[in-house]
């Protein structure tokens, strides 16, 4: 009990501090409704991808192929969406086509997830290597299919996903919120979730307790793949296009968001609520720096420093706790 809430509280106070700081530095431009809306449109992609990374990290793995998966799924969706089919056959705004495209994209993402799962669970390849291999393979396929070109020009129904609001809330943030709730329920309220945490800490003990480890890992990477596919929906609908190398800089950020949100790099610990706070903190800092006109590359360097700072802090905290325990 203690542990979970104390970490959450620390993050929460950091968040308040960060908001205060950015307000101070940027004044009303930061606190404007417009600014928050623009953040709300940017945050979901990274948020959904971070969840795809997080679930792999919980099992003490990593998924380097999430961005590549999102891009390939996005391209498959885009290829279907740009088919010239008479509009009357596809419903208002091409809704029928959009649904078909999304299903096909998610199917591809799920297939990649299962491939990762198979390599890691059944062939026992280390997650870094397995997902490195699929990353190269999948991004190669994306490149080979598109020959490096942008696929663009979607029906209105698709563009609406990325750019409209419901009750004043951008659709992407609603998709993100739904994704967060679902993942949170999976992790906290299902037996699969409980097994994921335990497996992340000690797969052998899980094996001897009747846990079907390969199945848990398959499910983990399947979910990771599916979340990448959902991120693809948000991504291509916002850009109104798909391309083989969108969002490559997100890979570091997803690790950063997870670690910042309290996901242990060694596996077994971390919650969606922490991840969301980490995500918001990161978004606010990046937005604030952007408003201040800070060079984007300086921001990139800053993320690296924040990542190390967070890990150092965790290390010192753990050492302190252990010292207290041993006395």
């Amino acid at each position: 009990m203690e542990r979970k809430y104390s970490e959450f509280l620390v993050l929460f106070f950091i968040l308040l501090g960060v908001i205060g700081l950015m307000w101070l530095l940027n004044g009303s431009t930061f606190m404007s409704l417009n600014n928050f809306r623009s953040m709300a449109f940017q945050l979901p992609e990274l948020g959904i991808l971070s969840m795809a990374m997080m679930i792999a990290m919980l099992t003490s793995g990593i998924n380097l192929s999430i961005i590549a998966t999102a891009n390939l799924a996005g391209i498959i969706m885009a290829l279907i969406l740009t088919q010239t089919i008479p509009p009357e056959a596809t419903g208002p705004g091409g809704i029928g086509l959009v649904i078909l495209a999304i299903l096909a994209g998610l199917l591809v993402a799920a297939a990649i997830g299962l491939l990762n799962g198979f390599l890691i669970a059944h062939l026992e390849i280390s997650p870094i290597l397995a997902t490195l291999g699929t990353m190269i393979l999948v991004s190669g396929l994306a490149l080979a299919i598109t020959k490096g070109y942008v696929v663009s020009g979607f029906p209105p129904a698709m563009r609406a996903i990325g750019n409209s609001t419901i009750l004043g809330l951008p659709v992407p943030i609603l998709i993100f919120a739904a994704g967060a709730v679902i993942l949170s329920v999976i992790l906290q309220r299902t037996s699969l979730g409980a097994r994921i945490y335990m497996l992340g800490s000690n797969p052998l003990a899980c094996f001897y307790s009747g846990v079907n480890n390969p199945r848990v890992l398959m499910s983990t990477y399947l979910i990771s793949g599916l979340y990448s596919g959902v991120a693809a929906i948000v991504m291509i609908s916002r850009f109104n296009s798909a391309k083989a190398d969108y969002g490559e800089s997100y890979l570091l950020l997803t690790v950063l968001v997870s670690v910042l949100g309290g996901v242990s790099a060694a596996g077994g610990f971390g919650r969606v609520s922490g991840l969301i706070l980490g995500l918001i903190i990161l978004q606010i800092i990046s937005n604030g720096l952007n408003l201040m006109g800070v060079n984007t590359f300086l921001t990139v360097a800053l993320w690296g420093m924040v990542l190390i700072a967070v890990m150092v802090l965790q290390f010192l905290l753990n050492r302190y706790k252990e010292k207290r325990r041993s006395i």
């Binding site: 570091l252 790099a265 360097a301 993320w303 690296g304 990542l307 190390i308 890990m311």
Partner: peptide, 12 residues
Amino acid sequence: ITTIATLNIYYG
């Protein structure tokens, strides 16, 4: 994790 971070620091 360390080198993902330093990659970004050095490059940025």
